[in-house]
Design a protein around this nucleic acid. Structure first.
Lengths: 148, 148
DNA sequence: TCATATCGGTTTCAAAATGAAACTCATTGA
DNA sequence: TCAATGAGTTTCATTTTGAAACCGATATGA
């Protein structure tokens, strides 16, 4: 395969984002990280991914500044992978994907995990882009303005 | 490579979503579709993707119910690919990715496209999951409740 | 109207990414 | 002290990707 195309110089933010996390495992690693997974072995067991691939993706995510390594918090000599500030900001992305999946990829009545407000226990309302005044914005009401 | 792992029976909505659109091209095709691209050749030129891959991804997206084909609206005998209702609901996902990219993947001063409210021309506020009462919800304040 | 160019693919083939399993080597636990 | 676990890396077969060539159907234009 002639070198995989990179979008790291594409002026579209979506393209650049996809270049960094638009791969099946990276996104699931980030999801797990939000769920508190930190150790190599825990990611591996949770995802069922091949170790070499996991190793590669963890390094990529660290390099991208989404994860960082630090000494394990359980007192052992191992290290752990935690979300950076930048990584934490992916929360809306993961939630949006989750909500879309919840609504469209399960048969009615089919059991699935659900994201709830820890305080109230109630499901989190469907996330949507909103205008300045708080009104929900439909796709047609937003516009990509090229090259600021 | 032993057949690529599928998550279509995973109980996690994020995993299922990633299984459907968690690939570099699918997401960019959807982004283009939101920008009004409809024809095979236009997707191809816009993305620079190999034709065989584009063909494959378009079929997958149609199969997944995200895109649908219909006779071209320009009067020619060709067909076009348009977002379905289900595909349109991916809007928050694309916007979240775009906003994250805008904030984290460009050097200060580096030009990039920007999503604005068509009516007011103002940039769209950062999207975030919110609790029932409208308060922004931090990652730690949400919790995945397993198997509804 | 006939020739030519464009559209929307499919086929072919080499290079690259993936995955399972085996292999290391350090750390932990008994 | 010695086996078991953790965290990778290496190897190798399989799959996916991508560029380019090819193809039939449609559009264009002289």
């Amino acid at each position: 395969m002639p070198r995989r195309k990179s979008s790291s110089d594409d002026p579209c933010p979506v393209a650049r984002s996809v270049d960094v996390i638009g791969d099946r495992w990276s996104l699931l690693i980030v999801r797990d990280a939000f769920d508190g997974v930190r150790r190599f072995g825990d990611f591996q067991r949770s995802l069922g991914v091949a170790r070499n691939i996991l190793s590669d993706r963890l390094h990529q995510l660290v390099e991208a500044g989404i994860l960082a390594t630090r000494p394990a918090s359980d007192g052992t000599a191992y290290k752990e992978y935690v979300l950076t500030e930048q990584g934490e900001r992916l929360f809306p992305v993961v939630v949006a994907l989750r909500q879309w999946g919840e609504h469209h990829l399960f048969a009615q009545g089919e059991p699935h995990s659900r994201l709830v407000d820890r305080k109230t226990g109630k499901p989190i309302p469907f996330m949507a882009p909103r205008a300045d005044n708080g009104d929900e914005l439909a796709p047609g009401e937003a516009e990509v303005r090229k090259l600021t």
